[in-house]
Structures are given as structure tokens and as C-alpha cells.
Design a protein around this nucleic acid. Sequence first.
DNA 1: CCTTGTGAAGTAATTCACAGCC
DNA 2: GGCTGTGAATTACTTCACAAGG
Lengths: 219, 219
Amino acid sequence: MSTFRRRVIPDATIARLPIYQRCLMELEEDGRKKASSEQLAELAGVNGAKVRKDLSYFGTYGTRGVGYDVPHLLHEIRRELGMTHDWPCVIIGAGNLGSALAKFGGFVDRGFSVVAIMDVDQSKVGHQVGSLTVRHEDELPEVVKEFDISIGIITTTAAAAQDVADQLVEAGVRSILNFAPATLDVPYGVLVRDVDVAIELQILAFHEERRALSEAEIV
Amino acid sequence: MSTFRRRVIPDATIARLPIYQRCLMELEEDGRKKASSEQLAELAGVNGAKVRKDLSYFGTYGTRGVGYDVPHLLHEIRRELGMTHDWPCVIIGAGNLGSALAKFGGFVDRGFSVVAIMDVDQSKVGHQVGSLTVRHEDELPEVVKEFDISIGIITTTAAAAQDVADQLVEAGVRSILNFAPATLDVPYGVLVRDVDVAIELQILAFHEERRALSEAEIV
DNA sequence: CCTTGTGAAGTAATTCACAGCC
DNA sequence: GGCTGTGAATTACTTCACAAGG
């Protein structure tokens, strides 16, 4: 057996791959066959060196003097991101946000499909959300098995989030997208990504506040 | 005039301040008066040294041998984040996500209020979203003035996002929270933060994919 | 004692700059 | 001549480790 060690990819690079994918999709739609690192960088809002270094972690996909072959590079990035197959997801929390995400079709073409939406609240169970019927959270283990789910999306309140995370882990889910404003405690090997809109707004507010202060100082 | 230079705060530190704020709010609700950097770190999911260094950029708020005074530190962080006053926001794009965000009250207690929701689509104008009535996007300049808005939230399609960003900038808004999967081009001095759920899912998928590959390798 | 605040050391990410290849 | 791929240099961030202070 070969002792080939998969290269370590910086987190920052991984986070940019989906952006490159999106830009390449745009280029492909426009019928562009080739793109230089600078052109890609322009679309992605970064600089050329970063694009080249990021891509170099995965292989040498470009041609010197020419640039990158758009369809080929897109295919390679898709493969790296696991976009060659579909990822079934479950949403737990059928409130405003959970329902909106379930109804939103925008992830399907990116390889993700919401196959179930669940809630603890019995009064929500049975309700229709788009094409899905809300099921009770207790059915999580069966749902995960039934659809072979590997990604769980938490859209509950902060108070309920840790419980739900525990249930997801218990059911075998190792990737969690957390919209609840709570720090989740999960075992080693389980990956949580947080999406916290309030935090993003607060970061904007911090800079607004500083701007206001420095402008006041000048006067 | 003093040439006092406001200390440069690392971006990574700024991004953690809202998390500390949230943890301090939890501690305060529990009636806790004091907290050590280690205790705060535990709640925030980081380590003690990071908490201490982060806080040290703003001043010396702790007491050696004791820890931090919860209400006092909370107050200081709130001040730094500009949470001492309210931030009126406008949402542009009255689709599923925009409507869900407008209805969601969870930002109000964090200092943000959605004061208007707008859309280009005439058929959506006049509809009720929670307590707000959808207004036409063309009214943006007046709305920004009327409510003294400094934060714009884009929940349109990717295709429309750049146009909306331009209009926001034109109307004087310098902080944008962008939910559209698009790289926005804005003038210097305007800050954009992107929230892209598809990207977060793709990052999770990348790791799932790698896990699957390494597990296959072991066999 | 205990815990902060912080220089110094260590790591990670970005950018430079240019050799190598088309 | 133009553009990639990548070591080397730089910058940003984290963690260590300990002096100083309650």
C-alpha cells in the first residue's frame, strides 16, 4: 500500500474554492474557454497570486503563457469539493429561517438538497414547507438512515441548539451548519460551521462606529 | 490637536467580540458577577490566552487574581461594538430569505432593527412582511434619509446584487451585508460582509469528501 | 496563591518576484 | 512575450510562558 500523504490544504484556501467554482460557472455560461489567474482573481475579488497558489495545492491545472482551461478547472474543483454527487441535508427547526432555507431552491444546483425538515414543536409537525412535510425531531435517527444524510442544518433557538447537535452526532452526522447563536460543543471529528447574522451585523457596526469616531476627531 | 492613534485591532479579534458579548450576556443572565479568561474562553469555544489578548487591545478591564467584572466588561464591549445605540437596517429583496430576516426578531435585542424592506418587483410592493410593508426599491434614497440607515442587507438574486449595491452606495450606505452569491464591487471605504450558505455547505462537503476518501484508503 | 497582561516564539496566510515553460 | 507555479519574504494571527499585581 502506498504511503501517499494527501497534501494539507490551508483552511483559507478551502474557503475560497467555492468562490472560484462560482466564478468559473459564470465564465462557462458566458462561453469563455480560457481564463488567466488575474481574470479569475478579478471575478473572485482577490489577487492573482492567491488564485495561483490556491490552485497549485491541488495540481498543475494551468498552462504557462495561456491560463486555465475553464471547463477542465471547473471539473477539478467540483471533484475536490465533492460536487460530483448530491448531498442530502436535514434542517432542524421549522421556524422562519428553517422554512425559508427549505423553500429556497438555490442550493440544489450547487449539489445540496434539503430532504427533510423537523421540529420539536408538535404543533408544527405535519405542516407543509414547500414540498416537504415537517416531521418530529425524534425521528432524526430514522431520517438520517433513510436518506443517508451527512449534513445537518440547525435553525432552532440558541437554547435548543446544543441538544439538537447532540442528537445529530448521535445519529451519525459529522457535519453541522449552525444558524443558532450558540457555541456548540461536539466531539472530535465533527465539524461545525457557524452562520451568525447578528455577528456579521455587529462587525459592520463596529466599523461604522469607528468611522463615526474618527470623523468626529478630524473636526 | 492630539495625534492619538487609535490602536489597530486585528480583524480576527473584531470578529470574536460579538461572541464574547453573547457569552457575557449569558453569564449576566445567570447572575454571575465575575469570570476568568478561562471561563469566558470555555463558553466562547476558544482558549484563555486569546481572550486575554483580544480584550487587551481595548484596555485593561480585568483584575489580576480575580478575573473580569461581567457587567463592566459587557458594557465596554457593547460600547466598542457600537451597541449603545440602535442600528436601523434596510433589506432589499423581499423573497423567502429577506422576508424571513425581516420577520425574525432576533436582531432587535442585539441592537439592530429592520425598518424597511424593499423590492424591484412591483407585484411584491405593498405586501405585508411582519409589521412592514414592502416598498419599491426606487425609494431607497428617501428611505435611507428618512431612517438614517447605515446598514443595507442584500437578499436579492446574484444577478441583481451589484445593481442594488450601487444604489445603496449612491444613497450613502457604507456597510453592506450581502446574502447574494456574488462578489460585489464597491468603492474604497464601503465595507461588504458576505453570508453565503452554499459556500458553508461546500466547505462541509469538502471535508466530508476527504473523510470518505481517507477511510476508503485505510481499507 | 491566582489570574491578568504582554513580550517573545511559533504558525498560518498572503504577497513578492522570478525561473521555467508554452 | 505572457502566464503559471513556487520558493522566499512578509505580514497576520495564535500560543507560550512568565513577570507583575491583586
